[in-house]
């Protein structure tokens, strides 16, 4: 594959499986059209790529599957813009393209022997799903794994079958919540915004790292609560979603201060974010 030379040239991918997650939210399982590409490809949790229907442009999402699951990658997206609309029209068996992996990684090696607290809101579970499964697949390396996941309504919760799987596992604690008014009569989870539920849960910050991902407003109210619970800025991780085009620090779009989110991120600790101008 000449992408070694032409950094803009993507891999061709076959859409192997499409899962409807929530209204307008889909997960694609993608396989490399060219087996040699599959053999040479590897990535780590936290990295992202540029997904595309040729002719319609590229769109940036994190790789949503875990690197421990070989042979395929998955992405989850909501149909909003031009590219995601085009992706939504694809059927199983269709061809699309993918460029990546780009960006840095969640330091899961450093987290060994620690408790992990994942906090996600809405469509921000997908960028975190990769690292969740990665650490769950290496379960013995970590102590308690807690996942707090919230969405506006029950229908908006993504990966419903996996949420069930996590609920059923005794070695994972999953708390799901929906915004007030978003519950259904048979809803058994929490009702309330993520920060409120987190405050009620009051997880210990002792030997724990928190990984937070969600809409800006959720992040804004969640971070102070984590600080109150005693989490140090170095132990709070998030992944930024700045607009990107190239993926390798050239096009200028994701430049925040001296960093390029696509090269130096997308994973940052709160301590690192505090060093950056608030342009994310």
């Amino acid at each position: 594959m000449s992408s070694i030379e032409n950094i803009y040239k993507p891999y061709l991918m076959r859409v192997e499986k499409i899962t409807n997650e929530a209204p307008d939210v889909r997960t694609f399982r993608l396989k490399f059209a060219n087996p040699e590409d599959a053999a040479s490809f590897s990535f780590k949790a936290g990295q992202f790529g540029e997904y595309s229907v040729l002719g319609e442009g590229e769109s940036t999402f994190c790789i949503a599957s875990a690197p421990t699951r070989k042979d395929y990658i998955e992405c989850t997206f909501r149909r909003v813009g031009k590219v995601t609309s085009a992706l939504s029209k694809l059927e199983e068996g269709d061809t699309m393209s993918f460029r990546g992996p780009y960006g840095n990684i969640f330091p899961i090696e450093d987290w060994k022997g620690k408790n992990l607290l994942y906090i996600a809101g809405g469509i921000a579970l997908p960028p975190m799903r990769c690292v969740i499964w990665n650490t769950v697949d290496l379960r013995q390396d970590y102590k308690d794994i807690t996942i707090l996941y919230g969405a506006r309504t029950v229908a908006d919760l993504v990966y419903k079958h996996e949420l069930q799987e996590w609920t059923d596992r005794p070695d994972i604690k999953l708390v799901t919540t929906v915004d007030p008014g978003g519950e259904t009569p048979d809803w058994k989870g929490e009702v309330g915004f993520v920060p409120t539920v987190l405050e009620k849960m009051a997880p210990s910050s002792e030997n724990t790292v928190a990984i937070v991902c969600g809409p800006p407003v959720m992040i804004k109210f969640t971070l102070p609560i984590l600080s109150k619970l005693g989490f140090k800025d170095e132990d709070i991780f998030t992944t930024l979603e700045n607009r990107m085009k190239c993926g390798f620090g050239k096009c200028g779009r994701c430049n925040v201060g001296k960093v390029f989110v696509c090269k130096d991120g997308p994973v940052f600790t709160l301590a690192q974010l505090k060093e950056l101008p608030q342009e994310y």
Binding site: Y8, G55, E56, G57, K245, C246, K250, C251, R253, N255
Partner: peptide, 24 residues
């Protein structure tokens, strides 16, 4: 100044992906 955009032209015979100037 080197900021750029990446766009596709997918209509007719000219199917290309290209980059073009953009500005912060």
């Amino acid at each position: 100044c080197a900021c750029f955009d990446i766009q596709d032209e997918g209509y007719g015979a000219r199917n290309i992906r290209f980059r073009c100037w953009d500005s912060c």
